[in-house]
Amino acid sequence: MNNKSLELIEQELTDLIRRIVISEKRNDSLERSGYILLRLLLSHGPAGVKQLAEKLQLDISTISRQAAALEAKKYVERVPNPADKRSYYYTITDKGIKELEENKQRRFDRLERIMESWSEEEQYNFGKLLKKYNEHVKENPKR
C-alpha cells in the first residue's frame, strides 16, 4: 500500500469517527458505549461483566462503569447467576429495548438522509468494505 492511499484512508477514518461522535452527541440520548452494550445484550442475551469485557475487548472496570450507568437509567438490570449466587448477569429491560430501538431508528434515518443520492450498489459496496475492515481489525486487534 502506498503512502498516498494510507494518508487518504487515515484522514477519512479520522473524519468519520469525529463526525459520528459529533452526530451522536447532537442526535442520540444514548452514549456510544451504552448503545453498544445494549445492542450486545439484546442480540446475545444476558451476560456477565467478564463476558461483556471479553466480547468488546475492554477491561472489566470499563464495562462495570458503563453497565452501572445503564442500570441507573433502568435500561439494564442485574439478574443473579443461578449457577453461582455470588455473581450476576446484566439483562436488557423493556425500557432499554425501547431506548435502543429509538436510537437505532434515528441512526437509520440519518444514514438514509446522508446516502439518499448514493445508488444501491454504492451503499452495498460501502457496507461490504466497512464489514471487511471491521472483521480484519477484530481478527487482528494488535495490528
Score class of each variant (00 low, 15 high):
Lys85Asp: 06
Lys132His: 04
Asn3Gln: 14
Lys142Gly: 03
Gly127His: 10
Ala47Thr: 02
Leu38Thr: 00
Asp28Leu: 13
Arg107Ala: 14
Ser43Glu: 13
Ser5Cys: 04
Glu101His: 06
Pro46Glu: 12
Asp84Arg: 11
Ser5Thr: 15
Arg19Gln: 14
Arg78Glu: 13
Gln11Leu: 11
Glu77Met: 12
His136Phe: 15
Lys4Trp: 04
Val137Gln: 10
Arg106Tyr: 11
Leu16Thr: 13
Asp28His: 08
Glu71Gln: 10
Ile22Met: 07
Ser87Leu: 11
Ala53Gln: 01
Leu56Tyr: 00
Lys25Ile: 06
Glu12Asn: 11
Leu13Ser: 08
Val21Asp: 03
Lys50Arg: 14
Asn103Ser: 13
Lys95Leu: 09
Glu121His: 04
Gly96Arg: 05
His44Asn: 12
Ser61Tyr: 04
Arg19Pro: 01
Ser117Lys: 08
Tyr35Cys: 02
Asp28Ser: 09
Asn3Met: 12
Glu139Leu: 14
Tyr75Pro: 01
Ser43Ile: 11
Lys104Pro: 02
Trp118Asn: 09
Asp84Cys: 07
Leu129Asn: 12
Gly96Ala: 05
Glu121Tyr: 09
Pro46Ala: 10
Met1Gly: 14
Glu24Gln: 14
Leu37Val: 12
Arg65His: 07
Asn134Lys: 05
Leu111Lys: 07
Gly127Phe: 15
Leu70Phe: 00
Ala83Phe: 09
Leu130Glu: 06
Leu52Asn: 00
Asn134Gly: 13
Ile60Gln: 13
Asp94Gln: 12
Lys73Leu: 13
Arg65Asp: 05
Lys85Val: 08
Asn140Thr: 08
Glu102Pro: 01
Pro46Gly: 02
Ile36His: 01
Leu6Ala: 05
Leu8Ile: 08
Glu112Ile: 07
Ser119His: 08
Phe126Arg: 11
Ser64Val: 04
Asn134Cys: 08
Arg18Ser: 14
Arg78Leu: 07
Val76Pro: 01
Glu77Gln: 12
Thr93Ser: 01
Thr62Cys: 03
Gln51Trp: 10
Tyr124Phe: 13
Lys104Ile: 04
Arg65Ala: 04
Ile36Glu: 00
Met1Lys: 07
Ser64Tyr: 00
Ile22Leu: 07
Lys142Ala: 12
Glu116Ile: 07
Leu130Asn: 11
Leu6Pro: 00
Gln123Glu: 09
Glu7Ala: 11
Pro82Thr: 02
